[in-house]
Nucleic acid binder design. Sequence first.
DNA 1: GAGGTGGCGTCAACAGCGTTGACTACACTG
DNA 2: CAGTGTAGTCAACGCTGTTGACGCCACCTC
Lengths: 219, 219
Amino acid sequence: METAQPRHTRTPRGTLSQQLLLDTAMEIVDIGGVGGFSMRALGARLNIDPTAVYRHFRTKNELLEALADRVVRGEEPLPHTDDPHADLRETFAQLRRSLLRHPTLAPIVLRRPPGGEASWDRTNHAIGLLRDAGMPDHDAANAFQTLLFYTLGHALTEARHTAATIAHKGPDATVTPVTAISSAAARFPHLAAVADHLAGAMETQFHEGLGLILTALAI
Amino acid sequence: METAQPRHTRTPRGTLSQQLLLDTAMEIVDIGGVGGFSMRALGARLNIDPTAVYRHFRTKNELLEALADRVVRGEEPLPHTDDPHADLRETFAQLRRSLLRHPTLAPIVLRRPPGGEASWDRTNHAIGLLRDAGMPDHDAANAFQTLLFYTLGHALTEARHTAATIAHKGPDATVTPVTAISSAAARFPHLAAVADHLAGAMETQFHEGLGLILTALAI
DNA sequence: GAGGTGGCGTCAACAGCGTTGACTACACTG
DNA sequence: CAGTGTAGTCAACGCTGTTGACGCCACCTC
C-alpha cells in the first residue's frame, strides 16, 4: 500500500470518466471485497484526489449501484436455441454465474429496487420463453418469479460463503464446502443422514433444483 | 432526538445485559433500519456510555450477528400436524415471516455462514418431514435446499423492497407494490403482457411458487 | 467488619469514513 | 484575447468503530 506522495503536477482533465472509475472500483472490490472499498481507496489507486470522484458520481452509494448494475446486467448474450427448456436453464445459470463473479457485491445487488433498467430485457426474454411455450400470462409470471427467486436465493447464499472466505484469506483462497454441519449432526439425526448430500457441490445442487422446478412447469 | 445531558449519577452495575442490549438494538433497527443503528445511538437510547456495550459484545458486528440469529431462529413453534405437506408449507412460511419482520436485517442475515446454531433444529425438522414422506436421502437434501433457497430469495427480495420504503418514509409507511415496471412495459411486449401479474401481492405469489415446488416433489 | 480484587461503566482520544464548500488551473466559447 | 464553466484539489466537518487508562463499587476472604 504505497502512501501516494503529494502530487506536483495536477492530474490533467478528462483523465477520469465513469468508465474508468467503475473499472477501478470493481478491481478494488474484487481484491478486497466491498468492505475494502472506499472513496479514499479509489482515489489512491488512481493517484487522484478522492473528492474528484464526486464530479462523476453524486454519492458512494450511486457508484456502488452502478457496480451492482454491471453485475445484474451480466456479460453473456441471451441464449437463443430452439429449445425453450434449455434456454430457460441457461438464462438463470447466467444470472447465477454473474452474481458469483463478484460475490461480495451480493448485499448491494440485494438492496437495489426489484427489476431495474439493467435486467428488463433479460426478464422480458425469459417471460417470452414461458409464454411462447404456451403458458397463460398469470402462470408465466408466477413461474418466472419462482425461478428468479430460487436462483437469487441460491446464488446469494453461495456468494456470501465465497465472500466470507475472500474476506478472511484474500481473493485467491480456495472455497471449501460447508463443513460446520458435522458438529451438529450428532444432535440431529435427520441432519446427520443427509449431511453428505448437503455439503455437496453447490453448482450440481443448483442445476438439480432448477431442473426440479422446470419439470414442474411441464414445458 | 434528545441530546442526553452529561450524567450526574453513574449507571449502577448490572443494568446492562446482552438481553437488554439486543432488545434495545432491535428497537433501533426496527425504527430506523440497520443504517440507523450505531454504538452511539444504542448508548444514547439507554442513557449509557456507548463504550459500555463493549463489555458485553466484542464488536458491533458480533452484536448484529446476534440480532440476525434472533431473526433466523424465529419465534413460532415448529409445525406438528400429521400432514407433512402442510407442515412443510408452514415451516418455510415461518421463515419468510421471520425475515420480513425485520426487513433491514436481511443483508446481515445474508452474510452469516450457512446453517448456524440457530437454524439447525428447524433444518433437521424440515428434512425429517421429507424423509418420513419416503424420500431418499439425496433427494431429501436437494428438495430441502431448493425450498430453502426459493424462500430465501423470495423473502430477501421482498425484504429489500420493504426496507427501502422504511428508509425513505419511516417504519409505518405503507409498502406499495412494484410500479416501476410500467415504464419499461412499452419497450418489452412480454413484460407488458404479464406486468399486472408481476406487480401482484408478494405473499400470494410466494405461496403459489412454494406450492409449485412442493407439487413437483410429489409428496 | 476490614481489606483486597476484579468487573463494569466512564471518559478522552484515535484513525478512518462520506461529504461539503471554497479555491484554482485550464480548455473552450465568443 | 477576455470570459466562463468545469474538473481536479485541498482543508475541514461531523460521523463512525474501537482502544486504553481511570475509578467506582460490589463482592470475596479473613
